[in-house]
């Protein structure tokens, strides 16, 4: 039940994030959308690793079934990767802001060409 709720949340976050990415014009807003969407993708994996009434997959942490450790491990990796790409893209946004004095995507497209 919790897992299913969380997968629905993950889908909603994907929609929200990607929709924001597509409908905003400012680069930082687009990146915020991307941020939310990647959070959704991560949550999606964790939610699929969950089992009803599960406990953390650590030895000695109580009885009962444990959650699947593999998706959790993947998500750890994915979170770091998303942070890395975000930091790099923000640096590029700073660079463009300093040189082109705008963060508006249509303006940048007009100046730099497709």
């Amino acid at each position: 039940m919790e897992g299913q709720v969380a997968t629905f949340l993950a889908s909603a976050l994907l929609v929200l994030g990607l929709g924001t990415l597509l409908s905003r014009r400012n680069l930082i807003w687009k990146l915020l959308g991307l941020n939310v969407a990647s959070g959704g993708a991560a949550l999606f994996l964790v939610a699929l690793g969950h089992r009803p009434q599960a406990r953390p997959p650590i030895l000695g942490w109580g009885p009962g079934p444990a959650a699947d450790p593999l998706p959790q491990a993947l998500v750890l990796t994915a979170i770091v990767i998303h942070f890395a790409t975000l930091a790099l893209s923000l640096v590029y946004v700073i660079f463009l802001t300093e040189h082109r004095h705008t963060q508006d995507v249509p303006k940048l497209e007009r100046e730099e060409g497709g």
Partner: peptide, 30 residues
């Protein structure tokens, strides 16, 4: 995702975790 629930039981993981010298299975994977 609706086709994925209810989730099937987990394959045994305790032995593999201790085999890597860990108690936290996530650390054993990562």
């Amino acid at each position: 995702t609706t086709g994925l629930f209810p989730r099937p039981p987990l394959p045994p993981w305790e032995a593999v975790t201790s085999q890597w010298g860990a108690r936290n299975a996530v650390a054993a994977v990562v």
